[in-house]
Design a protein around this nucleic acid. Structure first.
Lengths: 120, 120
DNA sequence: GTATTAAGTTCCCGAAAGGGAACCGTAATG
DNA sequence: CATTACGGTTCCCTTTCGGGAACTTAATAC
């Protein structure tokens, strides 16, 4: 989600899709939301070892802006914010399944001099 | 293809796959190689308006290192170098098809205040 | 002897992404 | 009064990505 420099090079449909899930984290965030259905900020954070709050916020905002994730704030204290995939985000599920299957095959294929494939 | 910082966070299979095709160009390069079967450097270059030689070289080397693309050099002058997808790269075809289909659906859905979806 | 060609490489730069650490506001809890 | 909890924000820094332009190499054609 960037529309970066290619304002004049709108790009093929493949680019359109990849743009939405590229970067270090967006794919994984979506994967977890698809998996869990609905997650609060810290619950998601716990599933993503290594990401900082700053980045997680950023990714979620971008996914929200792209229309793939919805953000619901409950006026409580302490705050409660729930994230879930939108209908359009849900439509990515089969793609993520395909990506995951392919990744598993690749890990299996290259199971030599590779670290262990830890949980997601 | 980076193995970046996550030497100790091997990542889920989704990450494995996305890592191989992320960035501004890798996806498109693979797309064209899958489309054409075999392309010489400059032929590929012509299909990618905007990329510089430097970057195209870089992307191809990374794809080659990842085992998705093969590079055949013919000892001629002027040089001839042919790129084609490997068997493993070929196995990504269905994923690219899925990405393209989803991207088209998205473009169709968001056909408002959007530039025209030009050819890839 | 000059130009051309294919497939790069080198250098150098600016922009963007990624990341660490501290800080914030409110309410309940001890 | 201090602490905890949640969901962030701010500041600042480093790394990576993307890109422009010039240079290279060796054979062949003019």
């Amino acid at each position: 989600m960037k529309v970066k420099h290619y304002v004049d090079v709108p790009g093929c449909p493949v680019e359109v899709t990849l743009d939405l899930i590229d970067g270090r984290w967006k794919g994984v965030v979506l994967f977890h939301l698809l998996d869990a259905g609905c997650l609060r900020f810290n619950a998601l954070h716990r599933r993503l070892p290594g990401i900082t709050q700053r980045l997680l916020t950023k990714q979620l905002r971008e996914l929200e802006e792209a229309g793939l994730v919805s953000r619901t704030v409950y006026a409580e204290v302490p705050p409660r914010v729930e994230y879930r995939v939108t209908e359009e985000g849900e439509s990515l599920r089969s793609i993520f399944d395909a990506l995951a299957r392919w990744g598993e095959m690749r890990l299996a294929r290259h199971r030599a001099a590779k670290p262990k494939p830890a949980g997601c």
